Simulated scan of single mutants.
Amino acid sequence: MTFSGAFGEAGSGALSGSFIELENVEKVFSVRRKAGLVRREKTEVRAVDGISFGVERGEMVGYIGPNGAGKSTTIKMLTGILTPSGGRLRVAGIDPSRERTRLAQRIGVVFGQRTTLWWDLPLKDSYRLMHRMYRIPDDRFAANLARCVELLELGELLDVPVRQLSLGQRMRGDIAAALLHDPDVLYLDEPTIGLDVVSKARVREFLRELNATRGTTVLLTTHDLTDIEQLCKRVMVIDHGRLMYDGALGGLHEAGESERLLVVDLERELPPIEVAGARFVRAEGPRQWLAFPSSASAAPVVAAVAAAYPLVDLSVREPDIEAVIAKMYGERELGARAGSP
């Protein structure tokens, strides 16, 4: 499928397999550590340990895990910044470590804690430099810049030096910079880190628009799980360099055996509510919390409570994905300890 419009035309060419392909990819770092007053020992740290997955063109995928899990290392290998220690990796049929310059024309990268903009130049001058670096046709550059400026609300910031921008403003500026050359793939590493609620909402809305209208493939790593919930239908969970889960967002709750909460406001303080299909969690005065499996319907529980108790109000709270993932990690570590001699 070819996408056109304000961001130009997507890259062409038939691809075999997935648009992004990783096959048993490994990355091992050699680290020297002190082993006495003078002596140092060389040890190996396996940051990525035999990961395999594929991402289709136009997918928006969440790639999540704790600090040190291997997320950023994976992104750096996908961009060609790092070379894999083993395995096979392709992006749009290109080996990133061997053809980094060629790949640069097909990808855009945003690292939340680093900037690709020139610190002392006005924002618009950074964009002009990128115009020349990527050799973007003038008409396409003008159209892409105008679209980014409109959707990310950058109009009043174009003449401001990058060093004077707030974190949220700079992040929006970096996202625009990553898209001026019409990349087929956008890698986002913590794109909303440190942003306020308004800036986060603006960035998320822009990414939804980009994916829907341009068909840009997006791989998103973040600690803000609201980003994943609002943007991604598919999520991959990585831990200690290994892929723990790859599937639909809803399936993550099932894998972690998550629960939804029913918050019930009663007319007066009563003993714990007892209804089939739910368990009592806690109470504060006339308010009580009940938990039930996220895979189950809330309707029978709500009906049972309404029929048996003097109800004022109630609400259903969805499970916290962060808690689900933490539980998965905990169960994995417990299993590893149980299996050790």
Rank of each mutant, 00 (worst) to 15 (best):
G11P: 05
G11K: 04
G11I: 06
S12E: 14
S12Q: 14
S12R: 15
G13E: 02
G13Y: 03
G13W: 03
G13A: 01
A14V: 12
A14I: 10
S16F: 04
S16Y: 02
S18D: 15
F19S: 11
F19G: 09
F19C: 12
F19D: 10
I20W: 00
E21S: 14
E21L: 08
E21K: 14
L22F: 09
L22M: 15
L22Y: 07
L22R: 07
L22H: 05
E23C: 07
N24D: 15
N24A: 15
V25H: 00
V25W: 00
E26K: 11
E26P: 02
K27R: 15
K27I: 06
K27F: 07
V28A: 09
F29S: 06
F29D: 06
F29I: 04
F29N: 03
S30C: 10
S30A: 14
V31E: 12
V31D: 08
V31M: 09
V31N: 08
R32F: 13
R32M: 11
R32H: 12
R33F: 02
R33W: 01
K34I: 05
A35H: 13
A35N: 13
A35L: 12
A35R: 15
A35T: 13
G36L: 08
G36D: 07
G36S: 11
G36C: 09
G36F: 06
L37K: 12
L37T: 10
V38P: 05
V38Y: 11
V38A: 13
V38D: 08
V38K: 14
R39D: 08
R39G: 07
R40Y: 11
R40S: 10
R40C: 05
R40H: 11
E41G: 10
E41P: 02
E41Q: 13
K42Q: 13
K42G: 05
T43K: 14
T43Q: 13
T43Y: 12
T43V: 14
V45E: 04
R46Y: 06
R46N: 06
R46K: 12
R46D: 02
A47N: 01
A47D: 02
A47W: 00
A47V: 01
V48D: 00
V48T: 00
D49W: 01
D49C: 00
D49A: 02
G50H: 01
G50F: 00
G50D: 00
I51W: 01
I51L: 12
S52I: 00
S52F: 01
F53Y: 03
V55S: 02
E56A: 15
R57L: 00
R57W: 00
R57V: 00
G58D: 07
G58Y: 05
G58K: 09
E59I: 04
M60Q: 09
V61S: 09
V61D: 10
V61E: 10
V61H: 10
V61T: 10
V61I: 14
V61M: 07
G62W: 10
G62K: 10
G62N: 09
G62C: 09
G62R: 12
G62T: 11
Y63T: 13
I64G: 02
I64T: 03
I64N: 03
G65A: 08
G65Q: 06
P66F: 11
N67C: 04
N67D: 08
N67R: 06
G68I: 09
G68T: 09
G68C: 07
G68A: 06
A69W: 04
A69H: 03
A69Q: 03
A69K: 03
G70I: 04
G70D: 05
